[in-house]
Design a protein around this nucleic acid. Structure first.
Length: 599
RNA sequence: GCCGGCGUAGCUCAGUGGUAGAGCGGCUGUUUUGUAAACAGCGGGUCGCGGGUUCGAGUCCUGUCGCCGGCUCCA
């Protein structure tokens, strides 16, 4: 969230809307324990521990209560207190939102406030018809709007479970999400935007455009790629393959399963064990696992012979399909599948080559993003969380690797942010983060520096001094995975892929039966044309349908060009060209059309 | 995995305890068509699956599977 947002009226308004909701909840559900309720990017939430589980059908009731409370024009007042006074207020049984019975989370929050920091409460109160005073008091840093009357344009969106302080070991609270705006028009526009975003959802478009499918009989998170989706994958892998060849990468191919011993050696078995599909055992009691990562295989290849300092860097690339047993609730179409293909490569480099190679990889990643038309991304440097024990390797290597990443970013003038705890278990990494249609962040491309696997596998090369030295590994995947990248591109382009990526680039529409042969011949001619590494991808619509219908369906399939062939064209040697974006472009010869493509 | 929601025809959806529906798609026939849906007819369903309540369940209860939103986790 931007600093300007955090200082905006809207931010305060949403924060106050969260309080208003909490006030409504404490009045409707005595015994509900308030935890935490901040504004967020598109609204606000409040985490509450309810005595009885809350249902979605309860939300309108809470909304109605909020409306009633909002109208009362309650002043929202700040008071600053000492820690002792704060504790007394939190435990004050005379205030409905406070008191010993519901103080559990607020007391913990109070304890978490560092000594010396101001402790403040916000109060809003009303007097009912019988003259009874109802207070709503909340421990809160603020700031807030002046009166509840300002909170008019809001909507409660959804319910979710959320662990107290984000830790699975803690109790799961009920989170109510809502949104609020300054004007009814803005609220309406936001809701409309959400509807529009849903139309771009890759799962919806993937089905409509025939890219991929899922089957309950195949299993959760295991996509089946349909011809058009499979074509899209090939176009993308061709493109990257070509870029990699230019940069000295060599292809390798490795199996889908491996003995568990390989992963014991790599350390994956410990850090990755709950992500693995169930093990397989053969008659000799050898245990195999379905591979969750490609790196150990590439390491085996590196290690299969003596390496000289002269041949480094070695760069092994593979579109490697891996399987990870993601928790059922985490699977999201092809953005988060259980089987997916990484555009993986591992670089084995000398220490003196690390920075240059790292920069080379980041540059390749930038080339890839540019070609794909992805301009809106964040660069995250994931570092070790000092409080976690999930990492392997020595601290000084971690420090070296982290420094290499930051140096590379600085040298390239790339803006980045540090995110402690987002490192791989074997080393720090640089990730590209892109938002999907629904505004969720996804990690796409990744570049990781690794001193640890070379250590574990005792990788070596012979140096100029004839002595053994240890290489450093760079793990990298510019797309991240084909699945996630295609899912994201589908949403970015709302299914209307740029010409070079479109699974079907041109559809030849025959006007009547008598034009079918000529349409086929035209398609064959176009298929001979090489465009951007591959032959043009052309289909023919020779069904007995009206032209209007054929055009409509080609438009809905987001086909970049429709070529219309009828009597006129046969007589004059031209075709009617229609583009997905600009409609009818008029008659032209095939050559003129190809020229316009730059083919 | 956890909290909440949703599963009706290939697709999108209607059906609020009393005989399972529409549009699109499919098939058949007619139409031979010039820039976003020709016309007619015909098929098509154990209402995700199992158990229960009821004279009677797509509808209520329960279990289970799948999907969706979120949390946690991740390419």
């Amino acid at each position: 969230m931007s600093e300007s947002y955090e200082q905006s009226y809207l931010y305060r308004l949403r924060h106050s809307a969260a309080h208003l909701m909490a006030q409504a909840v404490t009045e409707l559900y005595p015994g509900a324990k308030l935890a935490i309720g901040p504004p967020i990017e598109n609204g606000f939430y409040y985490d509450i521990d309810f005595p009885e589980p809350l249902k979605e059908e309860d939300l309108p009731k809470i909304e109605a209560k909020m409306k009633e409370l909002s109208k009362l024009d309650q002043r929202i007042e700040r008071t600053e207190v000492s820690r002792v006074e704060a504790k007394a207020l939190i435990l004050d049984d005379s205030i409905p939102s406070m008191g010993g019975a519901v103080a559990e989370y607020k007391l913990q929050l109070l304890d978490a406030i560092p000594a010396g920091e101001t402790i403040s409460f916000y109060n809003q109160q009303r007097t009912d018809r019988e003259g009874k005073l109802h207070r709503f008091l909340d421990l809160c840093r603020g700031p807030h709007v002046d009166t509840t009357k300002e909170i008019k344009n809001y909507k409660l969106m959804s319910l979710a479970g959320a662990y107290w302080r984000g830790d699975v070991k803690n109790k799961q609270l009920t989170r109510i999400y809502g949104t609020a705006f300054e004007t009814p028009e803005e609220l309406e526009a936001h809701l409309h935007m959400l509807e529009e975003a849903a139309k771009r959802d890759h799962r919806k478009l993937g089905k409509e455009l025939g890219l991929f499918m899922f089957s309950a009989r195949v299993g959760t998170g295991l996509p089946l790629w349909l011809p058009k989706g499979a074509t899209l994958r090939m176009v993308m892998t061709d493109f990257l393959q070509k870029e990699q060849v230019k940069r000295g990468y060599e292809p390798v191919v490795t199996p889908q399963i491996a003995s568990i011993r390989l992963y014991e050696k790599s350390g994956h078995i410990i850090t990755f064990k709950d992500k693995l599909f169930p093990f397989m055992e053969d008659e000799e009691k050898e245990t195999y696992i379905l591979k969750p990562m490609n790196c150990p295989f590439h390491i085996e290849i590196y290690q299969s012979q003596m390496r000289s300092y002269r041949e480094l860097p070695v760069r092994y690339a593979e579109f490697g399909t891996v399987h990870r047993y993601e928790q059922s609730g985490e699977v999201t179409g092809i953005l988060r599948a259980r089987g997916f293909t990484q555009d993986d490569a591992h670089l084995f480099v000398r220490p003196d080559q690390l920075l240059e190679e790292f920069i080379g990889v980041v540059e390749l990643t930038k080339v890839v993003l540019q070609k794909l038309g992805l301009t809106d991304f964040k660069v995250r440097v994931g570092t070790k969380d000092p409080n976690s024990d999930k990492y392997v390797g020595h601290d000084d290597n971690w420090a070296l690797a982290t420094k290499a990443i930051e140096d590379a970013c600085k040298q390239m003038g790339m803006e980045y942010f540090i995110s402690p705890g987002d490192a791989a278990f074997y080393g720090p990494k640089l990730d590209l983060i892109i938002k999907d249609a629904l505004g969720r962040d996804w990690q796409m491309g990744t570049v990781q520096v690794d001193y640890n696997l070379p250590e574990r596998f005792e990788l070596e090369y012979t140096g100029e001094d004839s002595k053994p030295h240890r290489p450093i590994m760079i793990h990298r995947a510019p797309f991240g995975s084909l699945e996630r990248m295609i899912g994201l591109l589908t949403e970015q382009y709302a299914g209307a892929f740029p010409f070079w990526l479109s699974p079907v680039q041109i559809s030849v529409l025959a006007i009547a039966d008598r034009h079918n042969d000529a349409a086929m011949a035209l398609a064959d001619k176009l298929r001979d044309v090489i465009y951007d590494t591959r032959n043009l991808r052309v289909t023919v619509d020779d069904r007995r349908e009206t032209l209007g219908k054929k055009i409509r369906e080609a438009q809905l399939q987001k086909t970049p060009y429709m070529l219309i062939l009828g009597d006129r064209g046969l007589e004059e040697g031209t075709i009617g060209v229609r583009s997905r974006e600009d409609g009818d472009l008029g008659e032209m010869t095939v050559e003129e059309f190809l020229d316009s493509l730059g083919a």
